[in-house]
Amino acid sequence: MAHIGVTAPVLELAGVGHAYGACTVLSGIDLHLPAGRIHALVGPSGCGKTTLLHLVAGLLPLQDGAIRNGFARSACMFQQPRLLPWKSALDNIALGLKARGVPRAARHAQARDQARRFGLDDTALAQYPQQLSGGMQSRVALARALVLSPDLLLLDEAFSALDVGLKAELYRQLLAEQARRPMAVLMITHDLMEAVRLAHAVWVMAPEPGRIATGFRFDDAPAQRTDAQVYARTAGLLDDATVRASFGLDAPAPAAPLALAAVGGLRC
């Protein structure tokens, strides 16, 4: 994305650490996320991924290190839809626009546009969240984030509770939105395959204290990756000794360090 010029925004983390009381959950996290790229942080439960995302989103005060967020607008999607139960789907999607002071008619029009792209019709938009299926709720949650046209999207295990079909659909929606404009995405997941499918860079975190153990780059466009490629790359990652150790998998597999390179992955 160098052609965008020197003003292209980045998210930069340098030596970020965090402790809850005496318990250090994150230490020495460095990250460089430029516009238009998708970075995934993968790791086992309890490695501090969510804490890291909360720090980036400003939901937690920064204790150690520095976070420089050059993006003007960021938006979040969480693991649970977290919709307001007393607002219709349409008003839920328009929530962030309302917070920005967009007048009612304009924000409803924008929300409706975004919703239509996600296959939500007017009947669904008039309903309250608890009348919608889980899949519909997730669509509303993603629409609520994307309608803000964020240039930085933070995903906190956003797809981990969904069935495969719905996952595939939301992946498509996300990549389509990302193809339209240079949106940076920082996603947290414990699903290696999801990271390998969507991300330009996969950072593997290890617990106690949470730190980045290793990273991999995939330079091809995520939208063009085939299932076979994704499986091969995931298998390649799972063969890596550092990755296995991070997830607490025993006995480093008979190493095939060339396998990952053969399917397009590069160790950072």
Partner: peptide, 24 residues
């Protein structure tokens, strides 16, 4: 979780009162 969501979406104080707290 809803409180956190409201913070993440930067709801201003009045909207937080009327859209988040009062209905509950």
């Amino acid at each position: 979780q809803l409180r956190e969501m409201a913070q993440a979406f930067a709801l201003p104080p009045l909207q937080r009162l009327f859209d988040l707290y009062l209905p509950h």
